[in-house]
Amino acid sequence: MKSMIDSHIHLDHYKDEEIEAIISSSPTIQSFISVSYDIESARRNLLLSEKYSKVKPAFGYHPEQSLPNENELANLITWIESNKEKMVAIGEVGLPYYLRMEAGDPSFPLHGYIELLEAFIILAKKWEMPIVLHAVYDDAPVVCDLLEKHSIEKAHFHWFKGDSKTIQRLIRNGYFISFTPDIVYEEEIQEIAKVFPIDQIMVETDGPWPFEGPFQGLVTHPKMMNDSVSFLSKQKGMSIQEVYRQLYHNTKCFYSL
């Protein structure tokens, strides 16, 4: 049995019957790190963790949406604080790269998002929790600045994309990244995997986000991570058993599971 952990999934975005099917058909998946989008998402992830012991929730506010108003943010922070013992991380939080690109507006205001992210970073530091980050391309160095400012050590950049300078910065700081199934067909992602140390890597699905290539038209399922492991095995020149063991160890230790 090749034990794995899905280090980043939005289980709350699946239908109830899909969640049941995913968990029952994934005996080798020891844990699902289910990240949250907003307070309703966090509440559902909490309920899922109470129903399924393998579900490990992370609570946060996804950046690819409008900023919460003052009351919404206060309610979210209060709720997270009252449930912090039940989560394994702060997440998913970060900066709205794709929202800005879709808007096509170079003056898109980032300052409110930066303050929101910093508030979550401060909580992660205060509670000694890992933080799960949505920070790609030009946003990644900004996020690194904030993490370094608050001396954050446990940072997980999910589905990371960025330049070589930022990649080396992440490596030096001991930050982790995770690869989705698109590693088997996206050259950009393959190039990042080539240089990133195996002991700072995890795998994820980011489900239910759909994938292309050999996964075109399929519902995203944790079994797709086997293809990611197979690719990493060939790229790193390691046996597939070694890669399974290393990735499982990385994720288990990072999230204190």
Rank of each mutant, 00 (worst) to 15 (best):
S3E: 12
I5N: 05
D6R: 01
D6E: 08
H8P: 04
I9S: 04
E17Y: 06
A21P: 02
I22G: 04
S25H: 12
S25W: 09
S31H: 11
I33V: 10
L48F: 08
S49P: 08
F59Q: 07
P63R: 08
Q65P: 11
P68T: 12
N69A: 04
N75E: 14
I80K: 00
E81N: 14
N83W: 02
V88G: 04
V88Y: 01
V88S: 03
I90C: 05
V93P: 03
P96D: 08
Y97S: 10
S107V: 11
P109F: 07
L110A: 01
H111A: 13
H111Q: 15
I114H: 02
L117W: 02
E118N: 13
I121Q: 01
I122D: 12
A124N: 08
W127A: 07
E128I: 14
E128S: 15
M129E: 12
V136P: 00
D138Q: 07
V142A: 06
L146Q: 11
L146E: 08
K149Y: 13
I152V: 15
K161T: 10
G162M: 06
D163L: 02
N173Q: 15
Y175I: 08
S178C: 04
D182C: 06
V184Q: 09
E187A: 10
E188V: 02
F196T: 12
F196S: 09
D199K: 12
V203W: 00
T205V: 07
D206C: 05
P210S: 06
P210A: 03
E212P: 00
P214L: 03
G217R: 10
L218R: 13
S228M: 07
V229I: 15
S230Q: 14
M238P: 00
M238V: 00
V243P: 01
R245I: 13
Q246M: 14
Y248F: 15
Y248H: 11
T251W: 02
K252Q: 12
